[in-house]
Amino acid sequence: MTFLDDFARWESGALTREELLARYPQSDKNMTEKNRAELTEKNQTEKNQTEKNGPSVDSELAMILDLHERLTAIGSAPVPYHDSEWEALRSALPERNAQKRSRVVHLIARPLVAASMVVGLSGVAAAASPAVREQVITTWHRIEHAIGVGGGEPAAPLAPGTSPTDRPTRSATPSPGGNGGDNHGQNGGGNSGGGNSGGNSGSNSGGNSGENGGDNSGGDNSVENGGGNSGDNSGENGGGNSGENGGGNSGGNSGENGGGNSGENNSGGNNSGENGGGNSGGNNSGENGGGNSGGNSGENGGGNSGGNGGEDPPPTEEPPVEDPPTDIPGGGTNGPGNGNGVS
């Protein structure tokens, strides 16, 4: 039976303090300064021996027992507790949804992040080289050239008043979507956005302002989340927004003769003018079919017609006036569109 065993027995109550001290009487003798110095010198050796044989009992055991009891008293001292503490804490804790992530996901998450960081950092490091950058840009231009997008050339303007539906069929080639330029002038030109196909394609937006607002003809958006065509036409003869499928077309037409928005799934813009144009939306189908909403205001409100949810138009005394193409040549300038439009 070692000293540590006896000490553990004292801790568990199997031995009394007196019994323990009686077993190791030399430990509680008056210790001289010389003994203390020797003890300090021996201290390291004793510590090393403790694991094997237990501590040297040539120490002031009673003092250590006092210290043990003092620590025990601190550990067992009464603690004030009120349930209000928990209530206050509970309300401060953030909500947390159940953690149902599988262990597999948990295991692959970190390596995946690490791999992504390695790839990203490698890319950044490679991009630091001018030769690499030049090669990437050259390759990108070749791809753009091959699929017929980009190039920085602005879209050709439509003739003012041209019906959007007269527009030639657009290419179904996937493209990131075009941004129609802004046309300002007496006869705003037309913006023709390219075709958008693919998930979350971009939008065609351009504004026409002028006496005869041109047409904003959004490209074909045939995707699950087609981009939107938005263009504001303000002028004497507002243009029209058209899109075939896909995202919503929202365009505000304001002018003497507001244009029309036509498309299958269109969220028509507001047409305001003396003769408000019509928003004609096609069929809206899908899990979340859009509505046809277009505000028509003007002396002669246009009509909303759509498969779903169009408001009945007020009886019109005269149909929306379709502004004839003007003889004045289109004076608009094309803004800096991305130029992927098909005219």
Partner: peptide
């Protein structure tokens, strides 16, 4: 743990 406790008590003392 018993040994570490003893050494700790000695050092504390």
């Amino acid at each position: 743990v018993n040994a570490r406790q003893w050494r700790a008590l000695t050092a504390l003392r």
